[in-house]
């Protein structure tokens, strides 16, 4: 058990990230969901900064700063404004009940861990053990998108999936090149804007943000 302090902290933050992914999966309220998303971004930014400090990869500082600015401040603020304008601070209903969702989530996490185990054994980064957690949070966000009915939580699930991917990149190869990261960050931001516009259109069309109504669009 001779882990350096920084990698211990990264492990702790990784565990926190996974916990937040589960919390988002089980959360009923949109408002709390956005808060949890912001916390996930904060944990991600902190762990990226610590990895940057531990490995001396300076470009990771930029991605940590980018994560902080974008996913902790800007996007949550945008989402807050959105749900205020859409007037959707209501409770979310779930497709299946929360304990079942959580048990499915545990299954997904175990699957991700066993999938990541051979890869992390080959990797040589200090953060290799967190790859399983990164993969698990991607899959959990995916699960969240599947079980949610309303549009806003689905988008939050999508955004948190990006968090998981970002973390996977950091833990497997110390992050992507800065250009790629900038591009992804911009995409996420633009995506949030477009989703925002979509929300208004969906509501105008169906008087609700429940995506079941979209099935009516099918031509028989």
């Amino acid at each position: 058990m001779a882990l350096s302090l920084s990698s211990q902290i990264v492990n702790l933050l990784a565990a926190l990230l996974l916990l937040l992914a589960f919390a988002m999966l089980a959360q009923r309220r949109v408002l709390t969901l956005i808060k949890l998303f912001a916390w996930q971004g904060a944990a991600l930014a902190l762990s990226t900064a610590i990895v940057a400090h531990a490995t001396g990869q300076t470009h990771l500082y930029f991605s940590a700063g980018l994560t902080l600015a974008l996913k902790v401040i800007l996007i949550p603020w945008l989402l807050h404004r959105l749900i205020d304008q859409l007037n959707v601070r209501w409770d979310i209903e779930m497709l299946i009940n929360i304990p079942t969702t959580m048990l499915t989530g545990i299954g997904v996490a175990i699957f991700a861990f066993s999938l990541a185990a051979p890869i992390s054994q080959m990797a040589s980064t200090v953060t290799r053990s967190t790859l399983g957690i990164a993969l698990a949070s991607v899959l959990l966000s995916f699960l969240m998108m599947i079980v949610r009915r309303k549009a806003v939580p689905q988008v939050i699930g999508f955004l948190s999936m990006e968090n998981g991917l970002f973390f996977a990149a950091t833990s497997a190869t110390y992050g992507m090149p800065l250009v790629v990261e900038l591009g992804v960050a911009l995409d996420v931001l633009v995506g949030t804007f477009i989703f925002g516009i979509f929300f208004f259109h969906i509501r105008e069309q169906f008087d609700s943000l429940d995506i079941r109504h979209m099935e009516k669009l099918k031509e028989d």
Binding site: M1, I106, T130, I133
Partner: peptide
């Protein structure tokens, strides 16, 4: 369960 899984994952 998560605690147990994480123990196996980040053991070293």
């Amino acid at each position: 369960v998560l605690g147990m899984l994480i123990h196996f994952l980040v053991r070293g």
